[in-house]
Computed example of a mutant assay.
Amino acid sequence: MKEIVRAWRHIPQRYSLIGSKCSHCGKVFFPKRVLCPECRSKGDLKDIALKGEGKIHSYSVINTPTDDFKLIAPYVVAIVELIEGAKITTQIVDCNSKDVEIGSEVELVFRKIKEEGDDGVISYGYKFKLKE
């Protein structure tokens, strides 16, 4: 039951990129924060809808994954710097890992994250793909 409650509570973060922008220093963060990690200002953070576009800042190709991800290996995990300035760790999908480069432009997509339980409940969330 705890997992169901947690899943429902995290739905806004799974299906949209909502970050925080500090009214004091102007920095943008994802996920949302209540305290600015840059200037330590508290309570001056406003929600901001992130556009879901950016560039690959760094990446790694995972060839030997955990059991949960064996079926999709090899796959790419990257740190993407969004156009608003926030950085996000995400999987890069729908491409050959050899096509991924630092500086490649990417865009938000929604994909299957995992399938849970005997009923096969599918959880979706954000990932990124190379821009065409």
Rank of each mutant, 00 (worst) to 15 (best):
S23C: 06
D99W: 01
Y59G: 00
R6L: 14
L108E: 01
I48A: 06
R40A: 09
T64C: 10
S60M: 08
V34Q: 15
Q91F: 13
I83C: 13
E101I: 06
G85T: 03
I72A: 12
E84Y: 09
D99V: 03
G125H: 05
K21R: 15
V106I: 06
R33Q: 04
I48G: 00
E132N: 10
I79E: 12
S123Q: 15
N63Y: 15
S41A: 13
L71H: 13
K27I: 12
V28C: 05
E53Q: 11
A86F: 05
K114Y: 15
Y75C: 02
P12M: 05
I18R: 00
I102F: 10
G103H: 10
V93Q: 08
I79W: 10
R33S: 07
V100I: 10
D94Y: 11
S41D: 02
C39N: 06
C39R: 04
D118R: 14
G103T: 08
D47M: 00
E53N: 10
I4W: 12
V76M: 10
I122N: 06
Y59T: 02
E107I: 05
Y59M: 08
G43R: 00
K112A: 12
D68N: 15
I79V: 14
E107Y: 09
G52Y: 03
H57Y: 15
K131R: 14
G52W: 02
A78L: 01
I83V: 15
W8Y: 14
H24W: 02
A73G: 07
P65Q: 01
I83E: 15
R33T: 04
F110R: 10
H10F: 11
R14N: 04
G117L: 01
L35E: 14
T90I: 13
K55A: 10
K112F: 05
S58V: 04
D68R: 15
K131E: 06
D119A: 09
D119H: 08
F128N: 00
G117E: 12
K131D: 11
F30H: 06
S23D: 12
C22V: 00
I113C: 09
V34N: 15
L82S: 00
E3A: 13
C36N: 05
V5M: 05
V93M: 08
K32R: 09
Y126P: 11
D94A: 11
F30Y: 12
E132R: 12
K27V: 13
E3P: 04
V80F: 02
Q13G: 10
S23V: 03
I18A: 04
T66L: 15
K87T: 00
K27F: 12
V61R: 01
K27M: 14
K129Y: 08
V28E: 01
D118T: 14
T89P: 13
R33N: 02
N63I: 12
A86V: 00
F69V: 06
I56K: 07
L45F: 01
R14A: 06
P65K: 03
G54Q: 03
I102R: 01
H10M: 11
P65E: 09
P37I: 06
L82A: 03
A73K: 07
K51L: 03
F110I: 11
P31N: 10
R40I: 05
